[in-house]
Simulated assay, not measured.
Amino acid sequence: MPALLPVVQAQSQLLALARPLAIENVPLAAAAGRWAAADIEALRTQPYADLSAMDGYAIRFADLPGPWRVIGESAAGRAFTGEAEPGDSVRIFTGAPLPGGTDTVLVQEEAARDGGRLSLAGEGPGHRGRNVRRRGLDFSEDDLLVRAGDRLTPAVLALLGTAGHGTLPVRRKVRVAIAATGDELVPPGSLIGPAQLPETNRLMLAAQLADLPVELIDLGILPDRQDALEAAFRAVGADLLVTSGGASVGDHDLVQPALRAVGATIDFWRVALRPGKPMMAGRLGGMLVLGLPGNPVSAFVTTQLFVRPLAAALSGAADPLPRTRRAVLGEPLAPNGDRTDYLRAEQRGGAVFASTIQDSSMLRTLARATCLIVREPGAAAAVSGDSVEILDIA
Rank of each mutant, 00 (worst) to 15 (best):
P2L: 14
L15N: 10
P20Y: 07
P27Q: 09
A30V: 08
G33H: 13
D39T: 04
R44P: 00
R44K: 15
Y48L: 12
L51T: 08
I59C: 00
F61M: 15
F61W: 14
D63W: 00
R78H: 11
S89F: 00
R91P: 07
G101A: 05
T102L: 03
T104D: 06
V107L: 02
A112V: 10
G115C: 10
G116W: 04
L120D: 03
E123Q: 14
G124M: 00
G126N: 02
N131M: 06
L137K: 12
L145W: 05
D150Y: 02
L152T: 06
L152R: 01
L152H: 08
P154E: 15
L160A: 10
I178D: 04
V186Q: 12
P194I: 09
P194G: 15
R202V: 02
L203D: 13
M204K: 02
A210H: 13
G220C: 13
I221M: 03
P223M: 13
R225G: 08
L229H: 06
A231N: 12
G237R: 15
L240G: 00
V255M: 08
A261Y: 08
I266G: 01
D267C: 13
R270C: 11
A272F: 07
R274C: 05
R274V: 02
P275N: 14
L292I: 09
P296L: 10
V297L: 03
T324W: 06
A327I: 04
L329H: 05
L333S: 11
V352H: 04
D359N: 12
L366V: 04
C371G: 11
E376T: 07
A379N: 05
A381P: 07
G385L: 00
A394E: 13
